[in-house]
Design a protein around this nucleic acid. Sequence first.
DNA 1: CCTACCGATCGGTAGG
DNA 2: CCTACCGATCGGTAGG
Lengths: 197, 197
Amino acid sequence: MGKIQANRNQSRKDVIRHTAARLFRERGYTAASMRMLADAVGVEAPSLYNHIGSKAQILQEICEEVANDFLVQIEQVTDSKGSATQQMAEVLHFHSNMMVQQYDAVYVANHEWKHLPEAAIARFLEQRRQYEKKLVAIVEAGIAQQELQPVNAYTAVLTMLAALRGLEFWQRHKKQVAAATLQADMVALLLNGIVKK
Amino acid sequence: MGKIQANRNQSRKDVIRHTAARLFRERGYTAASMRMLADAVGVEAPSLYNHIGSKAQILQEICEEVANDFLVQIEQVTDSKGSATQQMAEVLHFHSNMMVQQYDAVYVANHEWKHLPEAAIARFLEQRRQYEKKLVAIVEAGIAQQELQPVNAYTAVLTMLAALRGLEFWQRHKKQVAAATLQADMVALLLNGIVKK
DNA sequence: CCTACCGATCGGTAGG
DNA sequence: CCTACCGATCGGTAGG
């Protein structure tokens, strides 16, 4: 019974977290109220607190998991020792996959981290800086090895990250372009813009 | 006296609007309270209502002005009858200028339009769609005239708009890259990625 | 998991 | 432009 109970609590908390991620994305963290969240989950507002610590803690867990997922994956790529072009393609691939598959959580981390408690903001931004640095290092290595055009590495990374973030809008264009097609086209466009021919 | 009074009211309202744009950007529309705005302007909260109609109206005016500015400027470009490449460079140029010079207002329009009243949301999104359509038309014309690579025009536009939006982060990297350099590099990167060589 | 409820804060008004 | 204040809603607790 202990184990079943633990599983039930786990799934209940998961439902709350996933529903919160969707609500935070749709309404924004501040405008999304715990009463809306309770409604969406199907309980009264106070009952949520049997599963979660606070509204702020939900946001924190979402942001921390997203930041961690991105860092773990880019470290796997840099450890792989492929060429710079291969590594960039791999990063663009898993990053765009995250945008599509973990849409709610990634969106919330990108847009609502400002509402984290101060200490958590510092940690989140530090993790993001580390991710950017690893990506810049890949681009710089590619330039040094003459695989990539001699562009400003920071600008290139900023442009790539911004374009990837643009996948947020793939939903608006779902009818015109399938997610997979948009993903592939965008990756190709970014690579063709920087890889030496 | 009437004229001076009108100017004073105008400048007072302008101060409120600019301060609100900055606050809405920093805190988000929902989390930015009228009391914070009053504090920043230097009056008590109720005094704001001698100059503005409501919190929602400030947001509406910001979003409408931004949307209108973008549409007016892209229409000037499409009326200019330059080549597709020239027109794209011009759009990228004024768009990135807006991102840098009207940072607060453009950021707020991009991030907080969801909090507009429903009718205003519909108008705002329709204006944004029109802007995108005009940009897609330029890219498609460029492809037809074999100036541009035969990419999916929607993807190319989405990628460009996303990259431009990435200029939001130029502030974070101010110390490493000057705004003008980042702007020029990003435009070059986007154009080199799509213009046939 | 619920009912009942609290202190804080919100956007905004009345009245001067 | 201010003081005084209102109804609504917020995140969260007590107690069962």
